[in-house]
Structure formats: structure tokens, C-alpha cells
Simulated assay, not measured.
Amino acid sequence: MTLQDIGFDHWFAAQTAELGSDGCGFARISAVDRGSYIIHDARREVPAELSGKLAYRIERPADLPCVGDWVTAQWYNNDTAAIIHQVFPRKSFLRRKTPGEAIEHQMIAANVDTAFLVQSCHFDFNPRRLERYVVMATDGNVEPVVLLTKTDLVTEEALETTLAIVRSVTTAQVMALCTITGSGFAALQQTLLPGKTYCLLGSSGVGKTTLVNRLVGQEAFATQAVSGTGEGIHTTTRRQLVVLQSGALLIDTPGMRELGLIGDGEEVDMGFEDIAALAERCRYADCRHAHEPGCAVRAAVELGELPKDRFESFVKLKKESAFYGMSQLEKRQKDKAFGRFVKSVKKRRKN
């Protein structure tokens, strides 16, 4: 196995001259758990820690290495452990707002080619949550693919209705799967290409770990029995990258309850392609689709061409993204002002 086999393509190779250093090699973060890291250099996986210099330079949690990141590392103790010295720029990423009141990004995974957005046909299906996942993927330059699981728990008519709803939410590819019968898995496996990185995103209990075990071909991760409603019990506790027999790389993630967005609102536009296309016909280029005359988006809602609940979801996500984005900007400005204050105090003390 080589670095190329675990995703080190030409984009990363072009940066090695700048990031390389004597005594160090390149590796990929394959697991993160409460500040502990495991790195993979195509030969082995070993535990790793941040160098003091790297830890000192990190200004915010999103700058810490996450699963999928490429790093420069130095091995020691007979190559059984390593120190991470530098992190490569990210080609793509999956991130969300940190859960709770904190206004920061939380990295989910980096350098992902395709995000599998997993929802159960039975208890979990939620088009509004799916919209958030689509926005998260497109914001990070990641291709979204929707996976509908537990198709055995619904009728064919109900499944067709669910598929129609998904297609009204996103133009992304959608696949229906059943872990009991194996239906849909052959088609899924054909999409998994060697050296490409895929990530599973979804709420707890929708069947992500079962999907991983079936794709790996063994019980790589523990699962628990489902409840009486068909809802699975959450088992994944950390983000982890595994290499499949096909050569594809798969990242499993713990279930996410909160999917807050941070930005200037443009990432929402990318996740709502139908509304973005309508907006191009608005009279004003900066139309907010509120009360402006000549708004093609509101006109589509009134004519029934655009579902009202989808438009309301779009407006809600735009406001949420803009609010947290502005809050984060203000926070950074305050942090910078405080940093300048500390430097000025140190300077006066020296004088």
C-alpha cells in the first residue's frame, strides 16, 4: 500500500516541497478521540500527538487536525508513536457550528470526496435535516449522495413517496438500501472507487455502523439491537477512517443532533440550487426574497412551483447562517483586539 492508495493525490503532492522537513514523513489522520490521534502512513497506524510548536500556533478548534487530514509527522520509539508537526491545507471539508452557544466551527472530516447522507425510511426521515446535510456538503466542496436505509420497514408506496420528497430537496444521487436483504448494496459498492474518501453522515441509529460492517465485510464495529420502533441504538463514539477491500476509504462518524451553520449565507445558496436558479430571475441582484418587487422566488411560491415549506426552510437557514457568521466575525475581532492589548502591555513592561 502507498500514500496514493489512502488518498494522497496530485493536489497534496504539489505541496510537499513547502511542507516537507528533515526527519519527517507524510501520514493521514485516521482517528480522533478526545484530543488523541491515530495516523496512517500506508504501512501502519500509530498513536500521535501534536508538537508543542503546532499546538501553540493553533488559534481555534477548527485548526486542529481532524479525520482525513494529511499531516507531516516524525516517528519515534521504534516507529510505534509519532509527533505531528504540520497540517496540510484542506482540499475539502465537512463542518458544522459547535453544539451549544459557542460560535465556532467544528470539523467533522477533511479531504472527503463524497458524503453519504444517511436517513432511515422509517423513523428518521426528515427533509429539513436533509437540506442541512446537503448545505454542509456543498459548502465544503464535497459531493452529496443520499442513502435511504431500512427500506424493509416501509411499503413500496411509502418508499416511492420518500424518494420523491428527496428529489424535491436535492439533485444529488439517491440510493435505497436494506441491510436485511442486501438490496441496493451492489449498486452502492460500484460507486466506491479506490483511493477516494467517503464519509457517512446521519443521526444516531439510522444504520451507519451496520453499513460500515457490511461494506468492510466483517463486524469491524460493534452494533446494538434496534428498538421496538426499528430505531437503532447509537454505537459509534469517534470519527474513524477505514480502508475497504475495494481500496476505497470510508469515514464513520457519531450521530449528530445539531447541524448549525456558520457563514455569510452563500453556502446555503449552494445547497438550494432550485432557489438559486429562480433568484437569477429576480429584478434586483441583491434581492432578499422578502418584500422586494419583482421577486421570482416569492412568485414561484405563490404559483405553487416552489413548495412553501422549502422556501421557509431556505429563509431560516440563511438567517441562521448570517447570524452565526456575524457573531463569529465579532468574536474574532474581539479576540484580535484582546491580543493587541496583551502585546501592548508586554511591550510597556519591557520598556
Rank of each mutant, 00 (worst) to 15 (best):
E312P: 02
D309K: 06
K347L: 11
K319Y: 08
L303K: 15
R348S: 11
V345K: 07
S344R: 13
Y324M: 05
S321V: 07
R332M: 13
A322C: 03
K343Y: 03
L317C: 08
K343C: 01
E330D: 07
F323E: 13
S327K: 15
Q333G: 06
Y324C: 01
P307Q: 09
K347N: 10
S344P: 03
R310N: 05
V345T: 04
F341C: 03
K331V: 00
F314I: 01
F323V: 08
S344C: 01
Q333K: 14
V301T: 01
D335P: 04
E302V: 07
E330R: 10
A300V: 00
D335A: 10
K334V: 12
K343E: 15
A337G: 04
A300G: 00
G339D: 08
K318A: 06
D335C: 01
F341M: 10
F341T: 14
Y324I: 05
L306N: 01
K336N: 10
G339N: 13
K347F: 10
E302A: 15
Y324H: 15
K318S: 07
A300S: 02
R348F: 06
K336A: 13
G304N: 05
K319N: 13
R310I: 05
V315A: 14
F323I: 08
L317A: 05
R310V: 04
R340D: 06
L329N: 10
F323M: 11
D335T: 04
K346N: 09
E305Y: 00
A322F: 05
G339M: 05
G339T: 03
E312R: 14
S344H: 03
A337F: 07
K334L: 10
S321C: 15
R332H: 13
L306G: 00
A300D: 00
K346R: 14
K319F: 11
S344M: 09
Y324S: 00
S344I: 03
R332V: 08
A322S: 12
Q328G: 00
E305Q: 12
V342I: 14
K343F: 02
K316T: 12
P307I: 09
D309A: 09
V315L: 14
F323K: 14
D309T: 13
E302H: 07
E330N: 12
K316C: 11
M326V: 06
K331G: 05
L306R: 06
K336M: 13
A300N: 00
Y324T: 04
A322Q: 15
E330M: 09
M326G: 12
K319V: 15
K334I: 12
E302Y: 05
L317Y: 02
G339V: 02
K331L: 15
D335I: 03
E305N: 11
K336E: 15
S327D: 09
F338I: 12
G339P: 04
K308C: 04
M326R: 14
P307E: 08
K319Q: 15
L303G: 01
F311A: 03
E330W: 04
E330L: 08
Q333I: 10
E312V: 02
M326W: 13
K336V: 10
S327C: 14
